[in-house]
Design a protein around this nucleic acid. Structure first.
Lengths: 205, 205
DNA sequence: TGTACATCAGTGAACGCGCGTTCACTGATGTAC
DNA sequence: TGTACATCAGTGAACGCGCGTTCACTGATGTAC
């Protein structure tokens, strides 16, 4: 850590980063303002120059998380290229990759107990991420005969649920602790079977 | 609440019940020993006659939860009657019903951060519940041509993940807050599509 | 370039609080004879 | 049935702790002239 003078320079983000590390290591309630401040090498009172309180910090973590999440999903989606199916599967993989690489954000977003509409900003970020999932589902749905299309929102919800369930049950704690399969395997096969159930038989339709 | 004398009579269970209510209302970290004691109308020191500490109480809640969960799943399964498919779907519904009716248990089991193998008893209860899911999946798998059977554990994991994901994302907080579908709808359709993907086209095979 | 001053971003001490837990105690209960 | 005594299951007070937060302060920085 670089030497610093009286002024930190970028304390707000440093506190968020510290809290993310703590939350990833010790669970949603495992961080305290005091400890985040300590980790940022600053007095316990300093955070209150940047956040109105503890909740404010958690909400900001979740907001940044949803923003990043949305970015990654959008990047994976690539406007449906090269094909709706390939793009859809890339989004699924991106979901899992996000949970793996950003556990602190993930916990703040989904396990910290903050309502996704706690603030306008948070709601917007959350909605943006969800929109990518819905769009990927909608594009893929177009390939189905109309009478076999489930409602788009439902399609997206199924995929969200399976992804989230896999993260929570199989991607936490010691790797492999809950079974012989990797989360990535589980998600790929699970989504694959689900898509076949919808009528996507061909790997590149 | 009935009058009682110096001795409570059934304090251990009363404390567990109080903690379950608190945990259901305020999240995994939302209960304290002191508050559970208060709710059971007893001094703050009394719980320590029955539990070695806070963790012990949480583990006991989770253990009872897994026990009840296993019972309900077994009851729903009915040894695969009337058909493997019907029994399988009943198990899915029982999963969701449990999460709905016993939110405190559910949170203690899956969101409190206790490792499922924290104690031998807890591990056994958890394994028993999981075994029902695996058996339901295995029985149903038998109906598939061998070359289309996924590994049984994987099959069960997919269904657990989707069920858990739906509980976490769509069955929490204000009903309908996250979408226009009920969790029950989502699970039924999701599992239905998944099963079709495996090759179960006929509703009563 | 130098100076005065407003503003910003920290400090350090203190607060009130509630928590988990311990301890010596005491009232109630069960049992042996 | 009565009594002595061991055991059980509570009490109430106290502990040390760490937390979130506030407050008066001060050092650093930026800006007007």
């Amino acid at each position: 850590m670089a030497k610093r003078g009286y002024h930190h320079g970028n304390l707000k983000q440093a506190l968020i980063d510290a809290a993310l590390e703590l939350i990833a290591a010790k669970g949603p309630q495992g961080f305290t303002m005091a400890e985040a401040a300590k980790q940022a090498d600053v007095s316990a009172a300093a955070p209150y120059r940047h956040f109105t309180g503890r909740d404010d910090l958690i909400i900001e973590m979740a907001r940044q998380g949803f923003d990043l999440f949305a970015d990654l999903l959008e990047f994976a989606y690539r406007d449906g290229q090269p094909s709706p199916l390939a793009a859809f599967e890339a989004v699924g993989r991106a979901y899992l990759a996000f949970a793996r690489k950003h556990p602190g954000h993930y916990v703040a977003m989904f396990e910290s107990g903050v309502a996704p509409n706690a603030t306008r900003d948070l709601a917007a970020a959350s909605a943006r991420a969800n929109k990518v999932l819905v769009r990927a589902a909608a594009d893929l749905s177009q390939r189905l005969p109309p009478d076999r299309r489930p409602p788009t929102e439902m399609f997206a919800a199924h995929v969200s649920a399976m992804s989230h369930g896999i993260v929570e049950l199989y991607a936490r704690g010691t790797p492999g602790s809950r079974g012989p399969f990797t989360p990535e395997d589980l998600l790929e096969t699970g989504i694959g079977i689900y898509l076949r159930g919808l009528g996507f038989l061909d790997p590149d339709c």
